[in-house]
Design a protein around this nucleic acid. Structure first.
Length: 225
DNA sequence: CCCTGATTCGC
DNA sequence: GCGAATCAGG
């Protein structure tokens, strides 16, 4: 198979999104893991945490134990304690960067002008028990919310769609296929996905043991549509 | 052994 | 440019 624009786009997207070369190769089909890696490098994609490189150590001081610690090495690593943690992302920042495992809540700070935009946040879909429990907008999620898949990359424009902060970026189908597209629904305020897909993207962390093996993933999985 | 990514090198 | 073979760490 050849590297068409689409295939390259998918490669980039997934690579930057944190997918492994194997997964990418698998998704693209017709190529080996090595092919993907080779191509990624040729494209100039940056290396990602590789087992090999990560372990790279500077063999300098052959000091088995005591580290007399030389005056200065390079730059003081971290003499700094740990000041104030960033003042909680004050504003709503759809930040494509998924640096926040848990999207900041579109808190109903101003209950004034936002009548009933019940932004169904991560907690909006908490398991409704047998009966009553119902807290539409829990200030604190029932359990820890984790991204179903590390997807920091979805913000990418992708030649395919007019993605904006207003439309759901959930991928429909498989990249590279003729009908591959994005959801496009109106987003759940504060999230990159529509309400429905927020439910898929952010899942309540279930107690150990009761977890479902197959975490839903935008790519790869059995057709989602 | 399985996985990972990096690199090499003949094509 | 491509990717199998190989390398090397986890």
């Amino acid at each position: 198979m050849s590297w068409t624009d689409e295939r390259i786009a998918t490669l980039k997207k997934m690579w930057e999104g944190g997918s492994t070369a194997s997964q990418i190769a698998d998704e693209l089909g017709g190529v080996s893991r090595n092919a993907v890696i080779g191509k990624a490098h040729r494209l100039g994609l940056k290396s990602r945490p590789s087992p090999v490189k990560a372990a790279e150590k500077k063999k300098a001081a052959p000091k088995p134990k005591p580290a007399p610690k030389p005056a200065a090495k390079k730059a003081a690593p971290r003499p700094v304690p740990k000041p104030a943690p960033a003042p909680a992302a004050a504003e709503t920042k759809p930040a494509p960067k998924a640096d926040a495992a848990i999207p900041s809540q579109p808190l109903p700070n101003k209950t004034a002008d936002l009548p009933k935009i019940v932004s169904i946040g991560p907690g909006g879909f908490q398991r409704q028990g047998p009966g009553d429990q119902q807290a539409p907008i829990p200030p604190a999620p029932p359990r820890r919310l984790v991204p179903a898949k590390p997807s920091p990359e979805i913000a990418d424009k992708t030649s395919l769609l007019d993605l904006s902060d207003k439309v759901c970026r959930w991928p429909m189908g498989h990249p590279g296929e003729p009908d591959f597209h994005f959801c496009g629904e109106s987003v759940n305020p504060g999230f990159p996905y529509c309400v429905e897909h927020c439910g898929r993207a952010y899942q309540a962390q279930l107690p150990r043991g009761a977890r479902r093996p197959p975490p839903p993933l935008p790519f790869g999985g059995p057709r989602v549509r």
